[in-house]
Nucleic acid binder design. Structure first.
Lengths: 147, 147
DNA sequence: TTAAAACAGGACTTTTTTATCCGAAATTAC
DNA sequence: GTAATTTCGGATAAAAAAGTCCTGTTTTAA
């Protein structure tokens, strides 16, 4: 088992973090990203294709092609990525898989888990790729609080 | 994907919660537990076998046989169960699967995730099956704080 | 115009997880 | 003692996740 996200999602986050850092070098090829992450090129290709369809990255075919972020790194939250790859189950489902667990009829663990889950959700929502670009950690968008 | 634990582990927790509540009825058969949880008997059997080997439950063969907790519900923490079924990876591994992530050379998310992970770990450590037995929520062991 | 580079997408394979089956051994009620 | 019940444990099957392969299309540099 992974910690919280599927391997696809972990790789997606790793790739996007890399792409944010090197976004000025033009499109990055799947090959280059795969080499950097030390994972199979074919696998990250598929993941990047999926991120392309959901408008998180933009792909460009042809000789100097590759992938680049579809918008500013400050505008792509970790939640955007997780939602696209794994969906929102992590933030909604019962911790012990109890079929009918909800705030009204909670499982025994529900009330302990809920606040942690909320913190986790907020962390993913408020954190953007832009928060991790070296030399730019305090770089906020005008009028916004990024962390 | 499940939230945080494997399905095996989710079922183990559900089963043990049930066993804690009905511990006065003598050994509960895998059949009965499976029916109550609405999952396959064969699957929960395997899980209970595993919990038997790690001394979380005790099994008894034969006509009136079944499974019962190996010690007081107040003495079985959720961490005991998770550790036995899934291991401690959830509480140690990098959130985005970065191979060399550690406090010294952390991945970008490390410092955000670490405190949440610690909270999660403490929750699992301090929470015991005994905390969930109906009509007994304030029932602490003498001299101990269960929650 | 052409060849090389790169993504697109479908099919396929492997691995892991989840689930099932079955015969053997143990226990107990009678 | 015997039959019924139940766990034990190995083998197997099914489903999901992870990873690979191949062919086609697009783009551009030369």
């Amino acid at each position: 088992m992974t910690v919280l996200f599927s391997k696809k999602c972990e790789y997606a986050l790793q790739a996007l973090l890399f792409m944010a850092e090197y976004r000025h070098e033009g499109p990055l090829s799947a090959e280059r990203i795969a080499t950097h992450l030390d994972i199979p090129k074919e696998f990250i290709s598929k993941i990047l294709q999926s991120l392309t369809k959901s408008n998180i990255v933009i792909s460009q075919r042809g000789k100097a092609g590759g992938f680049r972020l579809a918008r500013l790194p400050e505008k792509i939250s970790l939640m955007d990525v997780v939602e696209n790859i794994d969906g929102l189950g992590v933030f909604n489902d019962c911790l012990i898989g109890h079929p009918s667990c909800n705030p009204q009829v909670p499982c025994p663990l529900h009330h302990s888990w809920a606040p942690l889950r909320t913190q986790l959700k907020h962390l993913m929502e408020k954190t953007h790729l832009g928060n991790f670009i070296p030399g730019q950690t305090l770089n906020e968008l005008p009028g916004e609080t990024t962390l």
